[in-house]
Amino acid sequence: MQDLLYFIQQLINGLTIGSTYALIAIGYTMVYGIIGMINFAHGEIYMIGAYTALIAITGLAALGIAWLPLILIVALVCAMIVSSSMGWAVERVAYRPVRGKHRLIPLISAIGMSIFLQNYVHLAQGSRNIGFPALIEGGFRFGAEDSFQTSITYMQITIFATTLVCMTILSLFISRSRIGRACRAVSQDLGMANLLGIDTNRIISATFVIGAALAAVAGLLLGMYYGSIDPLFGFIAGLKAFTAAVLGGIGSIPGAMLGGLILGVAESMTSGYLSGEYKDVVSFGLLILILLFKPTGLLGKPEVEKI
């Protein structure tokens, strides 16, 4: 019974972290699906989302506003707006001018953008870890009083629920809306979509904006969950999310969700049953295995090499 509760606890930990990986992975996968490039600056967009949310929360606190739902909504909206404009601007400045050139050029441009944004935040916000207030506290616990109890915090529930809602909205948007249909068309054949009168530049911008908005959601959630942010924390999260995207099949939205969850659970099980030291070994080991045996990922469809 103890062991089962322990297992469930690690599963909850893994699913929580995995669902935020999934939120960030969407940004990688959508951009790849449409223009076949990897947006390495995406992790930084996520980091900027977290900083914006923190600034908004601090600002509201300074104004004396203490009603939690309002704080969360304002922080979320601010983070989404700033990150989305950032995502849009990055595409406009760093990727559009080099689109269609040799495939390495956008990649290098993306890495440059990532370094620029990191250092920009270093300068603007300082390089120290900044504490992020825990706005949602408390939780449920299961199991006998005097032995190991499985706990699930309200924060973890918030993370699951938000991820679920975001993913549902995104899936509906992609499958039902006009822009969503255009997105699918562009991802199938950019040139043809262009000929048929779709404003492909607008669609590409839209994917950057959507990906960035979801990353901002993840930024706010993870900031609150972990409790501190620093200018470098987007990098490793971006790397993990990228792994998740490749694991699930880059270009596929359900793949990103699945990849994120698998990666999160794999990490927490490694920490829980082996040792925290091997956490990253396992996640990147998984990436190598997938690339070796199923390069298209779990849910990816084989297609012509684009990158």
Partner: peptide
């Protein structure tokens, strides 16, 4: 006796393990 990764943010698994080890 265990190592973590410097710069990591998520210690939920570690904390669970500490609780289990009592």
């Amino acid at each position: 006796f265990e190592g973590i990764t410097a710069g990591a943010k998520d210690f939920s698994s570690l904390v669970t393990k500490l609780r289990q080890a009592d």
